[in-house]
Design a protein around this nucleic acid. Structure first.
Lengths: 229, 229
DNA sequence: GGGATACTATGACAATTGTCAGGTTTGGGG
DNA sequence: CCCCAAACCTGACAATTGTCATAGTATCCC
């Protein structure tokens, strides 16, 4: 028994909430649910997407491969976010890869349902537009951060970001565990540099680690580092 | 005698072309035309915008101030581009400053006309959405470039970008003349570094200069630098 | 035309960051 | 439970880049 979009709580978090009952029904009838294991791709750079993915569970990294063979992670998307919208809207192949960081559960919604609604329901289109405006603003912030802050500042910022957006587990570690390589790809630096700064932060008592898990110890000092001492 | 939007050629380049005749008439009746001198702001970071600006002539830099007091230029907008859309759509104060790089002529369109059309004309909303999707894709590219390429590579890329987007004058110089500081703010580096690289490129015969004007001499070699030799 | 002011340029130096080259630890599959 | 691959970590070094100091050059305004 498939769950119905009409009853899906996830919907409250994204633009689908602006759909009418009938539109939602159509989406629900055409959607398929899929599980994606950690490390597997939802889609890859250059793919032509035939629809969008609505995240029900787990986290996906959106990244772009650069000429020198390193990934840059542009965004981490979790429960409630819709992936692939840009590609479907502009009818181009996607410029980002989406790879599962966790085990994921996603709904695939064929582009016909989306395009249909985009043309008929201005409220929905406006809602999508608002989300995209928000993403664009965030992207601008990322640009300024990467170009004007040091690696150390960006590392500190990344940890605070992870805490604020994904929370902590019962033992006080960041709920989202990324590999050191993924962290370096979020921050935009070499893996070795990321590791070195993790060691330094640990020595200074700002964070603590256990295996690959990282916990925040001194949020205030981390914030000071972000601001530049 | 004011010119009418209905007859404005500029419109062909932006989302306003998706407006109906009546909507355009309303816009035309409510718009005001303004000239902005080189160096003056159209609006500044944090301003609440009461409308959008449609560029008829000249070029504007969209930039964001970072904590350390340096600007990062996120985009250069010229004829036909509409500025301030994001702020009006998300009803937040703007996250970017827009400053004239040239003498400019712009039309100011009050947000009421825009919001009204956004709610009623799905074609217009969709058109705006497509533009924003495009901007977001470009922003992703900028992020990857800044984080994965060296300053030298980005400088080379900037010159090619300026040539491709703004062309050359009759003497073979880049038609858009930016100060060294602006160039460094586009590239995301210190002004001195930018100047040093300009000198180096000049020595190697890749570009030539005359005052602050810069001309491209060896496009192929510049491209090779961008690609990483 | 001349002087103030902003922009361009260059050198010297230090700090940051990336690269290479090892080691060690961890964790998942047989 | 043990092994092996993958992930983590550290050191040494070099390259890149930013900062500071200073000097030359253009430009604007009176």
């Amino acid at each position: 028994m498939e769950s119905r979009c009409e009853n899906c709580i996830i919907r409250q978090f994204n633009s689908l909430r602006a759909m009418s009952k009938e539109e939602l029904k159509q989406v629900s009838d055409s959607k398929t649910t899929r599980t994606v294991k950690k490390g597997e791709p939802l889609f890859e750079e250059g793919d032509k997407l035939n629809g969008v993915y609505c995240v029900r569970n787990g986290v996906s990294k959106l990244s772009k491969l650069s000429a020198n063979g390193k990934d840059q992670i542009v965004k981490l998307a979790s429960k409630g976010e819709v992936l692939g919208q840009r590609s479907v809207i502009s009818q181009e192949s996607t410029n980002l890869s989406a790879i599962a960081v966790d085990d994921m559960e996603v709904c695939f919604i064929p582009k016909e349902s989306i395009n249909n609604t985009l043309q008929k329901n201005p409220n929905f289109t406006l809602e999508v537009l608002r989300h995209m405006a928000h993403d664009l603003k965030e992207a601008d912030d990322v640009i300024v951060n990467i170009s004007q802050k040091t690696v150390k500042q960006r590392m500190a910022e990344a940890f605070l970001y992870l805490k604020n957006n994904f929370g902590e587990d019962s033992e006080g570690y960041l709920a989202l565990t990324l590999s050191r390589e993924d962290i370096s790809n979020v921050v935009g630096t070499a893996t070795e540099s990321a590791i070195r700064i993790i060691s330094e932060f640990k020595k200074k008592g700002l964070i603590h680690t256990s295996g690959k898990r990282i916990g925040i110890k001194d949020e205030r000092k981390l914030l000071e580092i972000v601001e530049g001492f």
